[in-house]
């Protein structure tokens, strides 16, 4: 690594750390009017991280040790997965249309119109599809989980569950995190499919091309290593959505304001962490699948 690059990375890490600590401190704050200084931000940020670590340890225990809540998992998979499908498909279709419209004229002016299908397929499959799906799901699912668990927490429903000798980490958390984890690649495939299909429709409306030829051209140079890692990296996005939203929901307090804070912070933090994770995952994929 060159010194210049090292310095940039260090600066980036510093900025990222400050941003994350500020966000976490703000979102975990219980006293809105309390004076905020850098020490308290850092203390609160590390408290938040500590709580998150304990939460993750509880989650791992709940996931791997029996008994398992299969029925609730199936319900959550349906609730979080199938009900996100129309939204994800719509977002994927819109992405395909926009990409087609935006790149068509540029490629025509460079005399590279025949590259449009391949560009569209690679662009959607490698990045647009996964990240847009993750952000859409983050908006819909993370807010839902954060608000639902937050409301259950502040109305003592989670305490009631524990008092009934039912482990809320197994019933509420593990089922939701696993559903998010496993549904993301499936939703991403659906989004990719809609993006490519509607990309072709937008292309053929301006410059007619058969679907068969579009697919042939689009996938001519594409290999599994282009699609699979990019699709499967979304399990990490699902993990982020599930863990962050359940964590924020489970630590909600303070009535309706606490529920609102849990829902908002679930979306903000999971979206932020998805984008940051994407930066690292893209680089890792580039190294592992050159």
């Amino acid at each position: 690594m060159s010194p210049a690059r090292g310095a940039t990375l260090a600066e980036w890490q510093h900025d990222l750390f400050l941003m994350a600590s500020f966000t976490a401190a703000e979102l975990s704050s219980t006293r809105k009017t309390a004076p905020v200084n850098s020490t308290s931000i850092f203390v609160r940020f590390f408290e938040w991280l500590g709580d998150l670590s304990v939460f993750c340890a509880q989650l791992l225990r709940a996931v791997f040790l029996p008994p398992y809540e299969f029925r609730e998992f199936a319900r959550q998979f349906d609730e979080l997965g199938s009900k996100s499908l129309p939204l994800v498909a719509l977002a994927g279709a819109a992405t395909g249309v926009v990409l087609s419209l935006e790149t068509h004229d540029s490629l025509v002016s460079f005399g590279a119109k025949s590259l449009l299908p391949e560009l569209l397929v690679l662009s959607i499959g490698k990045e647009s599809g996964p990240i847009i799906t993750a952000l859409i799901v983050s908006g819909r699912v993370a807010a839902g989980i954060g608000a639902e668990l937050g409301a259950m927490k502040v109305t003592e429903q989670i305490d009631a569950m524990e008092a009934s000798a039912v482990d809320p980490y197994k019933f509420l958390v593990a089922t939701r995190v696993l559903a998010c984890f496993l549904m993301m690649p499936l939703l991403t495939l659906a989004s990719d499919f809609c993006g490519i299909l509607f990309g072709w429709i937008a292309t053929t409306l301006t410059d007619p091309i058969s679907l068969h030829l579009f697919i042939n051209n689009g996938f001519k140079e594409v290999e599994f290593s282009d699609f699979l890692p990019a699709t499967f990296k979304t399990v990490f996005f699902g993990l982020i959505i599930g863990v962050v939203s359940c964590f924020q929901g489970m630590r909600a307090h303070g009535g309706t304001e606490g529920v609102e804070r849990a829902a908002t912070s679930s979306v903000v933090l999971s979206s932020l962490f998805i984008i940051l994770a994407d930066v690292m995952l893209v680089r890792i994929i580039q190294v592992l699948f050159p």
Partner: peptide, 27 residues
């Protein structure tokens, strides 16, 4: 130990997504 202890919460703390009979069946 909790199986031998029942707890009635101040606001009942019923699971609001479940019906009356599902609430009682839950434990």
């Amino acid at each position: 130990i909790r199986k031998s202890v029942g707890f009635l919460f101040q606001n009942a703390a019923l699971y609001d997504a479940l019906t009356v009979q599902q609430n009682v069946a839950f434990p």
